[in-house]
Design a protein around this nucleic acid. Structure first.
Lengths: 152, 152
DNA sequence: ATAAACCTGAGAGTTAGCTCTAAGTCAAGA
DNA sequence: TCTTGACTTAGAGCTAACTCTCAGGTTTAT
């Protein structure tokens, strides 16, 4: 069962333009061609695209993804490199999640800040608010922010 | 206490070039100027930069950040808009975290895959591996991936 | 007073990752 | 056979977010 680039594009939900761009960048060395030069995608190519998508989601640049694809094409001699790469990428994503969770805390604080301001009709309410009227979790974020500020 | 752009750049760890770029994009309407036109940053401007940084980390484009800064400059009449914006941004970040956690699962699977291949000396080991030799958590990811694949 | 270091805005250049156009080739249905 | 739509490559264009260069003005320390 073979697919043209247009059919495969629908399957993986990536435009044919983008698939050709990936091919040009060397991300799809596994794709077969017909005699007349037309790309023939297979079902198993779907798995390759899943790996590519996964690495893209980690923020890895296309050049580095190409390096990794080339390692796979090279065979078992590159297993160590591939393992190292995934370990590093795993750590990178763990850091990204931690970073986003910090950002989320600040956003939660800001939501509370504007909920309170909305109820009072003015942001000025935050000049007179008492510490004990601030919810526990919000107060912690507020104090963390102050600390960062005073570091500089 | 006023800072020149160079001094402030060090404080917030952003290059003077980038700060001028932000100013040009309208992100720093609160920065005062000396008679001769030189920017005079204040301690409290640090907080503005913290908000800008926070929104940038959520992936918000500079134009949208400018809209938000303009709302703050407009005063209390824009509190509702600002609250809505933060609520949406909070949801967006929660989705990003969920997405990264899925990606992390796949990376963990790949780490296990290559650890196993490394021990065996070949990726071919995965053609003959028994289900019961796959750790519980890894097996779950593997099955989830299969399901996604068969959807198409 | 003068050199060094820093400031200014305008605008050019860079990078990544698409996204599209053009000119031509190929394949399937009426 | 002919039309229509999808395929091909090369290469141009686009957007975001910087990043840097330039020519000129300002500040500060000797």
């Amino acid at each position: 069962m073979y697919y043209t680039i247009g059919e495969f594009a629908k399957k993986v939900n990536i435009s044919p333009h983008t698939l050709r761009f990936y091919a040009k960048e060397g991300l799809l060395p596994f794709v077969e061609r017909s005699e007349s030069g037309i790309r023939m995608f297979k079902d198993e190519d779907f798995e390759w695209l899943m790996i590519i998508e996964c690495l893209k989601k980690t923020g890895m640049p296309i050049k580095d993804i190409k390096t990794f694809i080339d390692w796979i094409m090279e065979g078992d001699s590159t297993i160590d490199k591939r393992l190292d790469m995934f370990k590093k990428q795993k750590e990178a994503v763990e850091k990204q999640i931690a970073q986003l969770q910090e950002t989320l805390e600040l956003l939660k604080y800001k939501c509370w800040y504007y909920e309170t301001a909305k109820n009072a009709g003015t942001c000025a309410v935050h000049n007179t608010i008492k510490l004990e009227d601030i919810p526990e979790d919000i107060r912690l974020v507020k104090e963390r922010l102050k600390k960062i500020h005073s570091l500089y």
